[in-house]
């Protein structure tokens, strides 16, 4: 990748052309401002055209953009007096998740943030944002600590998935995620979850239970990655574009299905085009969400949380099914 995505090529080419003309105009002292202005207008139109009708797969690509701000950028931009807390007290400190206490304006809270890292060295250090069981346990430990002192919890999600490895299985990846799902459902403090980039399946959900779920416009959140889905259902991971469409993993899909509460708009072309603006917009919404939650009595807030998850799912009731013929016993393999 050359710092831009395939579908951005016309934009990048036009940007280059404008820059070239500008250089020429300066060098030769010719007046080309009218031409430049025309091209800039064209660029604006082109950007609007391309970015306003992004496919789901293109959004996935934006969510994975190498320049996209990661969780630590948000922490830096938002928080003061940050005190990082390490370790699960059982096995290790999982660097794929950053946990710590900090202040968001005047609000003291705990942050649980999945961090992918930026350059190769950082990415390796953070394991590309793929948590191990000790990461989920570290998150739970710190969240339960926060709950004891009445500190609300802010979760930042950005992960390509829970780590699929031998050690992760040996140490109970499934158990660690399952326990978090159960325990987060009853944590007595407000929880606001922001999906920043990638929300891959159980790896994201394992820290993603909350009272308010916010999602950046171009982030994705799904039961499986488009590539994984394509490999299984299409038997061809190259069918990822079809899979991304079919999975309905974009922010507007999730809002429509009632999975998330709000979409956080990104600058045209993605969060990396104007990180500062992204941080500001998101911060306002996060503070607003905590504000709304803080006025609810804790019991009521918990009840809402459980009812929200209880009501998730779509099914139909068909009385005729009572009449289906009876299944026959025997080993499934011999059916």
């Amino acid at each position: 990748m050359n710092g831009y995505l395939d579908f951005e090529k016309p934009i990048v080419e036009l940007e280059k052309k404008i820059a070239d003309i500008r250089d020429f105009a300066t060098g030769e002292s010719v007046e080309l401002s009218r031409e430049i202005a025309a091209l800039e207008k064209k660029l604006e139109r082109l950007q609007k055209e391309i970015y306003s009708k992004l496919t789901r797969w293109q959004r996935v690509q934006l969510a994975r953009h190498p320049k996209r701000p990661t969780a630590s950028d948000y922490i830096k931009a938002w928080m003061t007096d940050f005190v990082e807390l390490h370790g699960d007290r059982g096995f290790a400190d999982d660097h794929a998740v950053i946990t710590g206490l900090g202040k968001l304006d005047n609000l003291k809270l705990l942050v649980v943030a999945q961090e992918k890292g930026k350059d190769t060295k950082e990415k390796l250090h953070h394991n590309f944002g793929m948590m191990h069981p000790e990461g989920y346990r570290k998150a739970l430990r710190t969240m339960q600590l926060a709950a004891r002192f009445g500190l609300p919890i802010l979760v930042l999600i950005d992960t390509p998935g829970a780590f699929p490895g031998v050690g992760a299985e040996e140490r109970g990846q499934a158990e660690a995620i399952a326990r978090n799902l159960r325990e987060m459902a009853v944590l007595p403090v407000p929880i606001v979850v922001v999906i920043l980039g990638e929300g891959a399946s159980g790896g994201a959900l394992g820290v993603g239970i909350g009272d308010r779920i916010l999602m950046l416009e171009n982030a994705w959140y799904s039961v499986i990655s488009p590539e994984g889905c394509a490999a299984i259902l299409w038997r061809d991971s190259e069918k990822k574009e079809e899979a991304a469409e079919a999975l309905k993993l974009a922010s507007f899909d999730l809002l429509e299905m009632g999975i998330i509460d709000k979409i956080l708009p990104e600058p045209l072309g993605g969060a990396h085009r104007d990180p500062k603006k992204t941080f500001e917009t998101a911060k306002t919404e996060v503070l607003a969400a905590f504000g709304e939650l803080s006025v609810l009595p804790p019991e009521e807030r918990l009840l809402h949380r459980i009812e929200k998850y209880r009501s998730m799912g779509r099914y139909t009731v068909d009385p005729e099914l009572e009449e289906l013929p009876s299944p026959v016993a025997g080993p499934e393999a011999n059916q």
């Binding site: 959900l205 799904s222 259902l233 993993l249 998730m312 799912g313």
Partner: peptide, 12 residues
Amino acid sequence: MQEGILSLMQMA
């Protein structure tokens, strides 16, 4: 997979 995110939410 065919129910996407709604299936994931059944875990929660």
